[in-house]
């Protein structure tokens, strides 16, 4: 594992990013943009499922925001991997980084559980206590991911 992480740090692209005064802040800014879009779309979806903005049709609202969330997550994944790569061994040893990764996995499992609930209900508009609980959990998990991520720079 250590050898793999050290190998990542030695890639030409990664070494360029490590030394660049321009590319690194740009990647950093794109990561912030991605997580901003991701958190916003996730929160709006969760709040709609919980019962806010009832005047908006839930199926269309959630379908649009889910597309935004997937694109934002893909952007966060690519830019996050780049930020990680410059000091891969350092970050991989940080408890708060590992906590962030664990929280992302939990948020993913929570999403799959929600999709299962949708299918079980037969439609795209799950209602009731189960869906509300999973949406609430999603809110807490994604906000925890954000906070854990910010603390990587301070621990």
């Amino acid at each position: 594992m250590d050898g793999l992480l050290a190998g990542i740090e030695q890639l030409a692209l990664v070494k360029g990013l490590k030394a660049s005064f321009v590319a690194y802040p740009i990647v950093n800014a794109l990561h912030i943009m991605s997580i901003g879009a991701l958190l916003t779309s996730v929160m709006l979806m969760d709040l709609r499922v919980i019962g806010a903005f009832r005047s908006l049709p839930q199926a269309a609202f959630v379908a649009l925001l889910r597309r935004v969330a997937f694109c934002a997550f893909a952007g966060a994944l690519v830019t996050g991997a780049l930020l990680f790569s410059v000091r891969a061994r350092e970050y991989a040893a940080m408890p708060v980084f590992l906590a962030k990764m664990g929280l992302i996995v939990l948020a993913g499992v929570n999403f799959l559980a929600f999709m299962r609930l949708c299918r079980a209900g037969g439609g795209e508009e799950p209602a009731g206590g189960g869906a509300v609980a999973l949406a609430g959990l999603s809110l807490v998990l994604w906000m925890s991911v954000l906070f854990a991520g910010r603390f990587i720079g301070f621990l």
């Binding site: 708060v96 906590a99 929280l103 939990l106 189960g130 609980a133 999973l134 609430g136 959990l137 807490v140 998990l141 906000m143 925890s144 906070f147 854990a148 603390f151 301070f154 621990l155």
Partner: peptide, 19 residues
Amino acid sequence: PFNGIRSVTLAAAAILAAG
């Protein structure tokens, strides 16, 4: 799920305190 919410909130609070 509610137990989950509670434990995750506690975890987040612990991370903030440690920070």
